[in-house]
């Protein structure tokens, strides 16, 4: 996995597979603390404690199609490679939160990558899911709440190309500002 935006997509796909109707994606960049935090939480079916125990074992998956679960172990590895870690909070029937933290300026820290396309792919292909995206960069914060947008649309499908376009423009505009803040 080349960058963190692809990991986010992969972890969010787990939430979709778990039947989530609401998925929160949170990115926190704290330059002062030299910390990068990713958090994906959902209201899907959750996991029992046995699954959680097995989950960081790279030879485990509950799927029958293929023998190895890869997604979570790969993100855990990416975090540990830069003095970070991955934690799983989950309750059967309630939902799951996957958090990964990274030392921001670590040489091995993967770049965030194309966050915009990750969000657009998720939103356009799952128009019934309430995605909430929050990106904090030091004192600045951007939030995108799909449930609010859906309300405004009043029955017009969220995956209408024109709607997707304005959502994409909105995220891009924020990311340009956020990236400029870096320098």
């Amino acid at each position: 996995m080349q960058d963190l935006s692809l990991h986010i997509l992969d972890i969010a796909e787990n939430s979709i597979a778990a039947g989530a109707t609401e998925i929160r994606i949170k990115i926190v960049e704290d330059t002062g603390k030299n910390l990068l935090l990713l958090e994906i939480s959902d209201n899907g079916k959750g996991m029992d404690s046995k699954t959680v125990q097995q989950i960081t074992d790279p030879f485990f998956t509950t799927k029958t199609v293929r023998k190895v679960g890869l997604g979570i172990p790969l993100l855990a590895q990416a975090a540990r490679e830069c003095c970070g870690d991955l934690t799983i909070k989950t309750e059967k029937g309630k939902g799951t939160t996957i958090s990964a933290c990274f030392q921001c300026d670590h040489v091995d820290r993967k770049p965030l990558g194309d966050i915009c396309n990750t969000l657009i792919v998720l939103i356009a292909s799952n128009p019934e899911i309430d995605f909430i995206f929050e990106h904090r960069k030091d004192d600045d914060v951007y939030t995108l709440n799909i449930a609010d947008i859906r309300k405004e649309l009043d029955g017009v499908p969220l995956n209408t190309p024109e709607v997707i376009k304005i959502i994409k423009d909105d995220i891009s505009a924020w990311l340009i500002i956020a990236n400029n803040m870096l320098q």
Binding site: Y142, N145, I149, V156, E162, I167, D169
Partner: peptide
Amino acid sequence: MARLTIEDLKKIKDKQKA
């Protein structure tokens, strides 16, 4: 929602409804 305005959405809504 940062910059995305209610008016933008409303415009699309009216057009799409047709």
